[in-house]
Design a protein around this nucleic acid. Structure first.
Lengths: 148, 148
DNA sequence: TTTATAAAAGATGGTTTTATCTTTTATAAA
DNA sequence: TTTATAAAAGATAAAACCATCTTTTATAAA
């Protein structure tokens, strides 16, 4: 549905948001390790998220990545848009350029239900919302899934 | 959501079903041309669909591809399974191996709605059902979308 | 049985995505 | 101002996916 880069990006954003605390900054190494993603690849993804102002970065010593208060309210779809773009929410299930609401392919209506549900899942969920659900504990990735 | 190979495969199956008529057989060239897919790639995909008994092939002169009566009833998800596998309907939206119904990630419930809707779209639709919706006309691909 | 035909099978390229490595730039503390 | 640090930027590599080409196999008609 969404790319690995995008999944890493969402996990990274949740991690950064969940560790948000006064002026704390997290570096690529920590983030990549905690979200179980390759370090150099994570650096590229974080760079892209910073460009789109989904997270914020600061270079130099004591620098790193962090998320600002207003950025917490952003819907996760902003991350999807930054990395994969919005085409997954628009394209025909059979890959037909001719397909549209007025000229639907035979799968249009059924496929649209799934596509819209996916869009809603990412649109209705904010980064803050996700971060608040993370459990306490030493391993972020293991506490990203609920305990009970 | 699904691969290009899979989209080509579904389109090809619909085309073959829509042209089903006594003992008619269609060759790769015709099929690829009509469904607007690359010919050699289409050959590989049709080969795979034949292996999974989604369509039937016959080698040699007057040979080609066709679909049998019983094959028309198959749900489109069989094509997805043959080409992409079923993982898209099972995997976590954030790519977490740890995520499950009992240990859900923070997006689990919302994502599951979309994933299930996608599975339903392909499960509840048969090849016959799709073929019956195709319009009459010279260009299959243009008549795959409804006229009004 | 021979021949023509069309799919199957196998080998090979190209492109995109995933991933890594190196060099440059920004910044904060000493 | 110098130095150390961490992200940004750019170049490169590996893997997966998309696509093509060539050789082999099956089959139907002559």
């Amino acid at each position: 549905m969404i790319s690995k880069a995008c999944q890493y990006g969402i996990r990274a954003a949740i991690f950064i948001a969940s560790r948000r605390n006064d002026g704390i900054k997290l570096n690529v190494k920590q983030i990549a390790c905690e979200v179980d993603a390759p370090e150099a690849f994570t650096a590229k993804i974080l760079q892209e998220l910073n460009k789109h102002r989904i997270i914020t970065s600061l270079k130099g010593p004591y620098g790193g990545f962090f998320i600002e208060e207003f950025q917490l309210e952003q819907p996760v779809i902003n991350i999807v848009n930054a990395i994969d773009g919005m085409s997954v929410f628009k394209e025909c299930g059979l890959g037909l350029k001719q397909c549209s609401a007025s000229h639907p392919c035979p799968m249009h209506d059924q496929y649209k239900i799934a596509r819209d549900a996916l869009q809603n899942a990412f649109q209705q969920t904010s980064i803050r919302h996700l971060a608040l659900q993370v459990n306490e504990g030493s391993s972020f990735i293991n506490n990203l899934v609920l305990k009970n």
